[in-house]
Design a binder for these strands. Structure first.
Lengths: 272, 272
DNA sequence: GTGGGCTGGTTCATTATTCGAACCACTGGT
DNA sequence: ACCAGTGGTTCGAATAATGAACCAGCCCAC
């Protein structure tokens, strides 16, 4: 593993519940030597990827990432476009919705919205990368991706996150076949216990999946009627998201979803 | 210079006008060997900091930075807070406003807003880091920072961006003294020709400057009355921004601005 | 087609950089 | 005064980065 990766992996240790991390904690969490971590952190700091609290000397994410995000969003505004769609979907179904982009063999969260109209909410940390094999988003994406990706992912050990996580490659292959038929993926407590989710793929140009969108529901609320309502709304949101980001639905999928309701117009203010 | 810095500097080559860069162009722009650049890029790609267009093989900024920005903003929402303030200021004064955070010895843009009500507009690229000695933002920040920073910045060669850029350290020191008296910094075509700007410091906890906010006006519109109006509005916006981000104005500055108008309430919708 | 000029990408011996155990210096609690 | 915990630094050994040379593909002109 190269030095660059070692340094960048430090950034993944930050999370919503751990926004500041000290040197020793970094060393523990990353399993690397304190001196090494310190050199990496100072170099990241020189480039603005982390900054150091002058008093506590703890590190947190720095301003450079804000600048880079602005650059990406100015020219390729995926997040800006997806946000109102996810917001609308969350309002429609009254549950937590999120979308992610494929990054290597994981999903990188882009945005989530939680209407918070219920007593119980689903936990979601945008810092946390999502596995492909244990989430409805991931399986939906795999189902429509070139087979090589699925084979590569299923060909390695599949960690179980709950006791309902599917880890048998051949069974997962049959699930993917079902998802291809259906267009969406329904998953029950495979990543978080107590949480059911419905996910579908977001397509880029050429009809190749670039990410996924999904709705997460506490298992106690996941009645059949509710799931059906979610599936309908999700199909509409995915179609809208794919078109708005400049992607194209593959013809089979478009045909499959022909009877999905037209997407509702969303509030476009407050962008960027 | 370490390997990590070499790799991260590649990311700074992206800009609003150059959102995608090929391997050879990267090598040329960075002045490094093609093989080296390629290794750095693949490692950045593995970590999601860049992604490669499958057809053109050009690289662009990847999804990881979106995720990291979300994490930072979830726990330390500087941008989310500054955005409506900058928007309001831009509406009030009818000119381009922006705010930046200190990153090493440069300013890293965080947000800008341009009401675009005039025929001529000021160019602003959020990818571009701003120098401290040649911008009103930078000088305003330097004036209120611990003297060591100013000495360090003024102690090295100061590039001129226009023929009006101030590059004489001792003269700049006198400018800083004036800014300390005044609270704001007025600069005429020092970074962009044809552009005047007024900037002031944003303070963090302990009253130490963490960034700056400024208004940029085409020189042809920079009449005395307009500048005065801008100065008043800017003082209000800075006070509001400093308080909202959890900072404190130093006592002298608070006294200096005691007669600035109370900040107007801003639209808080569309956050994140 | 074929040659040239341009890509992106790979190889491998040389070289320079990174690594990490041991070492300070400081802080807060007992 | 002590200890246990920080953040930070040093320097020889070990490792990883480097870049000239090398493919392979693409596109255009001839």
């Amino acid at each position: 593993m190269g030095t660059i990766t070692k340094a960048l992996e430090l950034l993944n240790l930050f999370s919503r519940t751990k926004p500041e991390i000290g040197l020793m904690e970094f060393a523990r969490l990353s399993g690397r030597d304190k001196a090494t971590v310190h050199r990496h952190l100072t170099e990241l700091e020189e480039n603005g990827f982390v900054e150091q609290h002058p008093q506590s000397r703890a590190y947190r994410l720095g301003p450079a990432i804000l600048r880079l995000t602005a650059v990406r969003e100015a020219t390729h505004p995926v997040r800006r476009i997806l946000r109102p769609i996810v917001d609308t979907l969350a309002q429609q179904v009254g549950e937590l919705c999120h979308c992610s982009l494929l990054q290597g063999e994981m999903l990188s969260p882009v945005y989530h919205a939680d209407p918070m109209i219920h007593g119980t909410q689903v936990h979601f940390d945008e810092a946390e990368m999502l596995p492909l094999h244990a989430t409805s988003s991931g399986l939906a994406l795999l189902a429509f991706s070139p087979p090589a990706l699925a084979e590569h992912v299923l060909g390695r050990p599949l960690p179980a996150y709950t006791d309902l996580t599917l880890t048998d490659p051949s069974f997962l292959r049959s699930v993917l076949a079902d998802v291809r038929q259906d267009g969406l993926c329904n998953l029950d407590q495979a990543f978080d216990s107590e949480v059911c989710s419905v996910g579908g793929p977001l397509f880029g140009p050429e009809g190749i999946p670039i990410g996924a969108m999904s709705v997460a529901v506490p298992a106690v609320r996941a009645k059949r009627a509710k799931i059906d309502e979610i599936r309908t709304a999700l199909r509409g949101a995915i179609r809208q998201a794919t078109v708005s980001t400049g992607g194209t639905l593959p013809r089979e999928t478009a045909a499959l979803w022909a009877n999905a309701p037209a997407p509702t117009l969303t509030d476009q203010r407050g962008l960027t």
